Computed example of a mutant assay.
Amino acid sequence: MAKNTIVLLNGETIQALAMAKALKESGYNIISICDSIDSYGYCSKHVDEKIIAPSIHEHTNLFHEFFVDWLKTNKVDAIIPMNDFSAEYLSKNKAELGKYTKFLIPDYEVFTKGYDKHKLMQICKEWNYPHPLTLDLSLENYEAVAEKMVYPALIKPNITTGGRGFARVTTPKELIEKYPSIKKDYGDCHVQEFIPPGGAQYKVELFINNGELINATVMNKIRFYPENGGSSCCSISIQRDDLVDLCFNILKTIGWYGFADFDLIEDPRTNEVKVMEINPRVPACIRLSLVSGIDFATMIADATLGKPLQKYEYFPGKVLRYMALDALWFAYSTNRFSTSPAWLKLFGKNIYWQECGGGLKAMLTGSLSGLKKQLNPKFREAKAGLR
């Protein structure tokens, strides 16, 4: 029997390393469609075919023309998106692309209820799910909203990734000064109370099929770079059934199905864990779920193709480190020798590396590319609002 072929869309990402390895071990052929050669996913040894295409984010129309033509002449059994842009693209173009292949993405009306940060906060408010105080912003109302908000606060684009476009404000005047330019650069925005540091931060990953929770994992994010609001560089898998139940209930309320990834923050003032956002695709740290026993990669592929699903056994207590960012954290943090797990403990039974899994070339190429991105002034400026 011929192997099924899976396309990793935006396959240049670091999560493609773990996804390709897991899918390969489950007997799938892998095609990676990338917008960069100098990347983790493009260099993975587990990918059977690699294709360079226009950027979905920067050249959406050009990519769409390319992709539809490519699908017409290539047999593809399923597509799995690797970042927000490719997930949104699949949802928006579900009717057309569905003529040629399969993918597990909610219809766009449902998709935006999770992906749009402000819509998600509105749903949380309506259904009394724990979340930060959040108010809508527009060019017509922002001055009035500025007077109603509690401070400090964050201006957030409704649709963005990785904290891009966020701006921390401490007074109504500052909000009024900063909002118009953020609106111009990033589109519709909202303002949200700033949760002070000191509480834990979590990720909850879930897979829903036919309204049933198939598997879930929870991660405690230990270290970040930059420290106050950056990307996670050290996480540990834990057991928190209460957080899984919370996120599952939200997804049922929205009508979501397939995979989803939540970010949550504990408010140190009340110890309440609050929902922050939903990521509609597998995260960069997906390897932590995989090494903890939950094979979301195979689950997504099998469900997309209508195969029976397996409920995996969860083994929490695994640590995942992202050396490229953890090295930067060590260089800049004043807590470098007081963190737990210890930074200098590089190896151990339950310690894994985010960059690994695709071979030495993928690790070195992707790490260098990631370091260049972190040091790029434009990238740092886009994320500077949290500092």
Rank of each mutant, 00 (worst) to 15 (best):
T170M: 08
G163T: 11
S232G: 15
T160F: 10
K183E: 15
P152H: 05
T171P: 03
P180F: 01
L246A: 06
L135K: 13
S232W: 11
F207Y: 13
L206C: 07
E205L: 12
K183M: 13
A200F: 03
A167H: 10
Q201G: 09
Q192L: 10
P152S: 05
D188W: 02
I159S: 11
K148R: 13
T171D: 08
C247L: 07
I195A: 02
K173M: 05
Q201E: 15
T217F: 00
P172L: 05
G199Q: 04
Q239L: 14
I195H: 00
F207P: 08
V169M: 00
N158A: 13
V145Q: 01
L246D: 03
N215P: 01
Q201K: 14
E143D: 04
L137V: 05
A146M: 04
D136W: 06
E174G: 03
I238K: 01
C189M: 06
Y225L: 06
K221E: 06
T171G: 05
E212S: 12
G229I: 07
G163F: 08
D241I: 11
T217S: 01
L137D: 01
M219H: 15
N228V: 07
N210W: 00
L135D: 07
L213S: 07
S235R: 04
T171Y: 08
K148Q: 14
K183V: 09
W127L: 14
S235C: 13
A200E: 08
L139S: 14
E174W: 02
L154P: 00
R223G: 02
I159C: 13
T160M: 14
Y225I: 06
L213Y: 07
G165D: 04
N128K: 13
E140S: 14
K221G: 01
N128E: 15
E140G: 07
L154A: 03
G230Y: 04
Q201C: 13
Y202M: 05
T134A: 09
N141F: 10
T170I: 09
D185V: 13
A216C: 05
L139E: 14
T217H: 00
T171F: 09
D245H: 14
V145R: 00
